[in-house]
Simulated assay, not measured.
Amino acid sequence: MIEIKTPAELAGMRAAGLVVAEIHEVMRAAIAPGVTPLDLDAIARRELAARGAMSNFLGYGGFPATVCVSVNDVVVHGIPDDTAFRDGDIVSLDFGAVLDGWHGDAAVTVPVGSVPDEITKLLTDCDDALWAGIGAIRSGGRVRDIGTAIEKAIVSRGDYGIVEEYGGHGIGTAMHQDPHVMNYRTRQRGPRLVPGMCLAVEPMITLGGPETHVLDDEWTVKTDDGTWAAHFEHSIAVTPDGPWVLTALDGGAERLSAMGVSTPATVS
């Protein structure tokens, strides 16, 4: 069942999204050699409490932390531990929050210190693919349009593996709702996009093959071939005037405007 929000409910979604965006900024600023995933989890807990919000990750299906911290060849769902980051690592932060019953969810992959040009390009290309997918969101379109745009952007940039086992989702009064949002073109058009629908879009790509496996902890997802992976995500609302990026501080206005995509007049 797809949840359609009223304008007032979208304002609640935006408030939750801003909590996620702000805490992402704090965690990203803390990443450096010697910092550990557990340090980031502690930051997330502290910042959530300061904003009167709750984690939607902690306890979800038994997940033991407030943030997924996935390093290098870990694609997603990494459980924070005390292994210190090293210069040249890449770290994916997948983090969400609940505020007044509304959920926000976003992810970003960042370098630790200096990384090779190939890795910088991996991160840039995955982020750009996310924004290509967001730019394809318009009232009257179809869910398939998102995955088609993501795949086209990725294929145009290089020979990357597009992870297919995991994808985006509806979001609102629960973190994971219908519809499922693929990161590649499918035969099925999927539901029509209508104002009030909220989606989390999250491409994941690798430097090698797309195949992955889950470790014995039943959470950590790694690439089969050991190549490194990138993961970017935002939560977005469909509006009559274009996509509203709920988990971007500016509502997505800067990136989308540069792409020639219209956005709501008010993205506060």
Score class of each variant (00 low, 15 high):
residue 3 E to S: 08
residue 7 P to M: 09
residue 8 A to R: 13
residue 10 L to N: 02
residue 11 A to P: 00
residue 13 M to H: 13
residue 13 M to V: 01
residue 14 R to C: 01
residue 19 V to M: 05
residue 21 A to V: 10
residue 23 I to C: 03
residue 25 E to T: 13
residue 28 R to T: 14
residue 29 A to D: 12
residue 30 A to M: 08
residue 30 A to C: 02
residue 30 A to H: 06
residue 30 A to G: 04
residue 32 A to H: 11
residue 34 G to A: 13
residue 35 V to D: 00
residue 35 V to I: 15
residue 36 T to C: 10
residue 38 L to W: 03
residue 39 D to R: 00
residue 39 D to E: 13
residue 50 A to P: 06
residue 58 L to N: 05
residue 59 G to Y: 12
residue 77 H to M: 14
residue 79 I to G: 01
residue 83 T to H: 04
residue 83 T to Y: 00
residue 83 T to F: 01
residue 88 G to R: 01
residue 90 I to S: 00
residue 95 F to C: 04
residue 99 L to W: 07
residue 103 H to W: 11
residue 106 A to S: 15
residue 107 A to E: 00
residue 109 T to H: 01
residue 109 T to I: 02
residue 109 T to Q: 02
residue 110 V to I: 14
residue 111 P to K: 08
residue 114 S to C: 02
residue 122 L to D: 04
residue 122 L to G: 08
residue 124 T to A: 15
residue 124 T to W: 03
residue 125 D to H: 15
residue 127 D to S: 15
residue 137 I to T: 10
residue 140 G to D: 05
residue 142 R to S: 14
residue 150 I to E: 08
residue 151 E to H: 06
residue 155 V to E: 11
residue 158 G to M: 10
residue 164 E to D: 06
residue 167 G to E: 05
residue 167 G to L: 10
residue 174 A to N: 11
residue 175 M to C: 12
residue 178 D to V: 05
residue 178 D to I: 02
residue 183 N to P: 04
residue 184 Y to S: 12
residue 187 R to D: 13
residue 189 R to L: 12
residue 190 G to M: 10
residue 191 P to G: 05
residue 193 L to Y: 09
residue 194 V to W: 01
residue 197 M to H: 05
residue 204 M to G: 00
residue 208 G to S: 11
residue 210 P to N: 08
residue 211 E to F: 11
residue 214 V to W: 01
residue 218 E to T: 12
residue 221 V to Y: 05
residue 225 D to E: 09
residue 229 A to Y: 08
residue 234 H to L: 06
residue 234 H to G: 00
residue 235 S to L: 08
residue 236 I to S: 06
residue 243 P to K: 03
residue 244 W to C: 03
residue 248 A to G: 01
residue 251 G to D: 09
residue 251 G to Y: 04
residue 255 R to I: 14
residue 258 A to G: 06
residue 261 V to Y: 05
residue 262 S to I: 00
residue 264 P to Q: 11
residue 264 P to S: 10
residue 265 A to K: 14
residue 265 A to W: 02
residue 267 V to H: 08
residue 268 S to C: 03
residue 268 S to P: 00
